Amino acid sequence: MRVFNISFHCLLKIALKKEENEEVQKEVEMSLLALSHIQFYSSIDKEPYLNEIKKIIEYHQEHYNLTRLAYQSAWKFLMDRYYEGNNSKWVIENELCFAREAAKELEDLSKCVDWKRKEEKMEGKEMKEVHIVNRWINVINNYLECCTLWNEELVGLIGGVVNVFRQAKDNYKNITKWCIFSFRGAVQNKNIEIDSLQKEGVVDLISEKMKQSTLQVEVIWDCLEFFLTILKRLKEKTDDKAEEVKRKANKKKMLEKLEEDGYEDVITSFHETIDCFHQQLKELTKNTFDYFVNA
């Protein structure tokens, strides 16, 4: 453990360098990349790393001294420890404004990729940009699952992931798979409003995805869980009159949408075609169907 802590602090010391030359920039990038691969359950003194990584991110936000990969790596290291306590959450959500920064990075990176080109035909810098997009989507998963601050920046982040999904859907299956996983996490977080997921197009894109004839089992699972969670949330009554009116309106809108898209037929086909090795998934299709019928 002592050797590990020494190595960790050496990497952090290198990452804090601010000299603006190519050699130092490469050292910083490599050290942050190495830090981003430290497992989230590794024992590290919380306050020192939180303060130091915060300094690195804040300095970049002001001076833009990091490469895209280095900046994403700093965030990945921090976001892998997002669950550790209220202090970490406050810094990530309010002081460093993760939702705003992640949405901006996704937008900028999306402009650097020719999404019409097959992934296997990419090379060099463009391939690296796609890799960084994938890394961002993965850390966004953590955020959407348990963020507590609901604001326009979070709505913008959800819209940014929707935009990436729509651009990547034809040629980048891995990215679209992780986008759907992110939306599954988002709908399970009661701090995220269902009507915003509808307005940003999340419901539409998952509904479209479910109609495809060939889907990976994990994608089917995430899509079904997404709708099952929405239906469960929309059945939960509230004592707040304004919120109750809103809930009923959203529920009506959602059921009309699902009926229009032939949702019953879609999940029935999943139930019939999934082989016996995926019994849990069969149960999920049945439960989703029952919720839809009885909603």
Rank of each mutant, 00 (worst) to 15 (best):
V130A: 00
I194T: 01
C179E: 08
V217L: 09
C147N: 04
V219A: 04
Q212K: 14
K111M: 14
K199Q: 00
C179T: 08
K121M: 10
R166V: 15
N163L: 11
K169E: 14
E107P: 08
C179K: 00
K177A: 14
W178I: 11
S196D: 01
S207E: 02
F98L: 12
W221P: 08
E101Q: 14
K118P: 00
E153N: 04
N142L: 08
D195N: 11
E119C: 06
Y143G: 00
D222G: 07
E200D: 03
E145P: 05
V164L: 06
D108G: 02
L197I: 12
E208Y: 02
F98D: 05
E126T: 14
V187H: 06
F183C: 10
R117S: 12
Y143T: 02
C147K: 01
L157Y: 00
K125H: 13
E95K: 15
L106F: 04
E152A: 10
Q198S: 11
W115K: 09
T214H: 04
A103V: 08
G156D: 08
E200G: 01
I158C: 09
D114T: 02
T214Q: 08
F181N: 07
K111D: 13
K111E: 15
I194H: 05
D170N: 15
E126Y: 03
N151A: 02
W178H: 15
E123D: 12
F181W: 15
N134M: 08
N163I: 09
G159Q: 12
D108Q: 13
V155L: 10
C146N: 15
K128D: 13
I158P: 08
I175T: 09
W136D: 07
S213H: 05
N191D: 10
G201P: 04
L106G: 00
Y143E: 04
I132T: 04
L154V: 10
R184M: 10
A186M: 03
Q167Y: 14
K199S: 10
C112Y: 00
